[in-house]
Amino acid sequence: MSIKKDNVIKVATKLFAEKGFENTSIANICSAANVSKGLVYHHFESKESILIEIFTQTTDQMIEMNMETKKLIAPNIQLQQLIETIFTQLHQNKHLFQFNLNIMFQPSTKKILSKQIERRASILFNSVKNIFDQISQERSTMLTYIFIAEIDGIALNYLSVFNKYPIEMIKQELLNKYKNIK
Rank of each mutant, 00 (worst) to 15 (best):
S2L: 08
K4M: 13
D6H: 04
V8S: 10
V8A: 04
A12V: 09
T13F: 02
E18D: 13
E18I: 06
G20A: 05
I29A: 03
C30T: 08
A32C: 05
K37R: 14
V40T: 03
S49N: 10
L51T: 00
L51D: 01
L51S: 05
L51C: 06
L51K: 01
F55P: 11
T56P: 08
I63Q: 03
T69F: 04
K70F: 12
P75N: 09
I77K: 15
Q81P: 03
L82V: 03
I83A: 01
T88A: 14
N93H: 12
K94N: 08
K94V: 05
L96F: 10
F97S: 03
L101W: 10
S108M: 02
K110F: 13
S114P: 09
S122T: 15
I123F: 09
L124W: 03
N130V: 01
D133V: 04
I135H: 01
R139Y: 10
M142F: 12
L143K: 05
I146S: 07
I146Q: 01
E150A: 09
D152N: 12
D152F: 13
G153K: 03
Y158I: 06
L159S: 02
V161C: 07
V161G: 00
F162N: 08
Y165H: 10
I167R: 08
E168F: 07
E168I: 02
K171C: 07
Q172F: 05
K177S: 08
N180F: 10
I181N: 00
K182L: 06
